[in-house]
Write a protein that binds this DNA or RNA. Structure first.
Length: 502
RNA sequence: GGCGCUAUGGUGUAGUUGGUUAACACGCCGCCCUCUCAAGGCGGAGACCACGGGUUCGAGCCCCGUUAGCGCUGCCA
């Protein structure tokens, strides 16, 4: 039998990185065993589900390169089937109508309410299955329903016994029926609830392995009960450890902002392969020390056995912009940027530069060689795709800003540079051929002649030509920026205009 | 409150059927390289393997307890 797994997010917001990782693991597992990876949108909560969210999920998966094999299933399309199934369970006697009026609950303190109620229940030793309608006769139940009285449908959980399943990550899980209340399958407005819908859809989609977050671990027992009521064998389960915030609390958009949203990584210049690689290592580890892995390698090495049980902390600092996300993710992105084939990097850069209005079509034809050489030079010290249009702006445009700290350090400290630099420009005009080696020879010769350290001219030039105090080897920079532009920039008065004010 | 899960340096993780100086990556520090900053090379700090008991000749690995964190406990998903 072919393995079939699914990623089943609810479209109630951006795609959370934890969800993205769940999708990744499902995808890797499916590809590793030659199975199929399906996508199901769990939009049963009509109030909170949005189309924008569905789009962001689809875009996110696409960005990560996680293609799904069949048509997307929208859970809301199966309402009627779910309803019918619940009603059949009443017929079968494994579920019953609960005519208790719906309790109104304010959304705000719902968590607190649940805890309080549970505390009270356990303190007073309330029987979970003391529902007065549980043993209502079928005739009476049918009569009241026919009379139009609203009812919820609850699963009838046996008083004694337990459910048990083998989790591929957490091992044998057992839970006494006494711990499980008669869960609601259908709301009194006849809206099917999560546990029912999941089971029914998983059955219909032929899901063989359910891989999802550990937050579903205990509820799995409820779902197994539903499978049993339905007379269907449950799939295999594998629960994934959670991804936590630095304080080991829940990682949420409300508290932590955009770091938790997958699209943030796309928008802030991550290479999808790098983020995917980083995500794969959160909670899973291969059987070797190799950490940089292509999708193919990840697929080949992936196995549920490599998944750990302890929750992972997503390590970032909210106060330090340089560590706005996990340092290792940032490192990995830089690693990808400086080592990936240019052929793969260039299309991403094209998009980035285009968005910043720095892209020129020539880069793809006449100036392709120059473009790739430049990219190859500057990518060595960039961390994100954004760096190419920001820090790297001077390579693609004559309109760039000067870093005040760089001006101060490399120019204003030595006013003589105001004369030296134009002289250097004159020397450079004579350099032939225009190569890093010849430029270096000319600059060093001039430094000797002017009796200044070469470093002085080099650092000053860097600031004049790029606006920065740091960057690649200056002679390479000269070469790439070109004779003409280099000379003009060395003679520019612009960088000196702020001298008085600093 | 009940039930469940987890616990290896700051973070992510390795630690094979219990047996060496507890390994790798990120981060941090230093040195080298050097025109700056990275990268790279070399080296370093940092973990009495949550704590307390056992079992054993021997435990990070097994057992019990404690503590902490997390999850579930909803007519949310």
């Amino acid at each position: 039998m072919t393995i079939r797994v699914r990623f089943a997010p609810s479209p109630t917001g951006y795609l959370h990185i934890g969800s993205a990782r769940t999708a990744l693991f499902n995808w890797l597992y499916a590809r590793n065993v030659g199975g199929r990876f399906l996508l199901r949108i769990e939009d049963t909560d009509v109030q909170r589900s949005t189309e924008a969210s569905t789009r962001s999920i689809i875009e996110g998966l696409e960005w990560l390169g996680l293609n799904y094999d069949e048509e997307i299933v929208f859970q809301s399309a199966n309402f009627e089937k779910h309803r019918a199934a619940a009603l059949r369970l009443i017929e079968a006697g494994t579920a019953y109508r609960d005519f208790t009026p719906k309790a109104e609950r304010s959304d705000a303190d719902i968590k607190q309410g649940i805890a309080d109620r549970a505390r009270a229940a356990s303190a007073e030793g309330t029987d979970h299955r003391s529902n007065p309608y549980r043993e209502l006769s079928m005739e009476e139940s049918n009569r009241r329903a026919a009379a139009g009285e609203p009812f919820a449908v609850r699963l009838k959980v046996a008083p004694e016994g337990s459910t048990r399943f083998e989790d591929a990550v957490y091992g044998t899980q057992e839970r006494s029926y006494a711990e499980i209340e008669d869960l609601v399958l259908l709301r009194s407005d006849s809206h099917p609830l999560y546990n029912l819908s999941v089971v029914l859809d998983d059955i219909e989609m032929g899901i063989t392995d359910v891989i999802r977050g550990q937050d579903h671990l205990t509820n799995t027992h409820k779902q197994i009960l539903i499978y049993e009521a339905l007379g269907v064998a449950p799939p295999r389960f594998a629960h994934l450890p959670l991804i936590l915030a630095p304080n080991k609390g829940k990682l949420s958009k409300r508290k932590h902002g955009e770091v938790v949203s997958l699209t943030t990584y796309r928008d802030r210049g991550f290479v999808p392969g790098a983020f995917r690689n980083f995500l794969a290592l959160l909670g899973w580890s291969p059987d070797t020390d190799q950490e940089i892995m292509t999708l193919e390698e990840l697929t080949r090495k992936f196995s549920l056995a490599g998944i750990g049980r302890a929750n992972a902390v997503f390590n970032f600092s909210e106060s330090d912009p340089r560590q706005w996300t996990d340092a290792k993710a940032l490192w990995m992105n830089a690693e990808y940027i400086r080592t990936m084939p240019l052929a793969e990097l260039v299309p991403m850069l094209k998009a980035e530069l285009r968005a910043s209005k720095l892209w020129r079509e020539e880069y793809e034809e006449d100036e392709r060689e120059w473009f790739e050489k430049t990219v190859d030079l500057i990518r060595q010290r960039f961390f994100t795709l954004k760096d190419f249009s920001e820090q790297g702006r001077a390579y693609f445009s004559d309109d760039f800003d000067f870093d005040p700290a760089a001006q101060k350090k490399n120019l204003y400290k030595e006013p003589r540079l105001k004369e030296l630099l134009p002289d250097l420009a004159a020397k450079l005009e004579e350099v032939e051929p225009w190569t890093a080696a010849d430029i270096e020879a000319a600059l060093r010769a001039y430094a000797d002649e002017a009796n200044v350290k070469a470093g002085l001219l080099i650092n000053a030039s860097r600031t004049m030509l790029t606006g920065h105090a740091v960057g690649p080897s200056m002679f390479e920079v000269f070469e790439v920026i070109g004779r003409e532009r280099s000379v003009v920039r060395l003679r520019s008065a612009l960088p000196w205009s702020d001298m008085e004010s600093m």
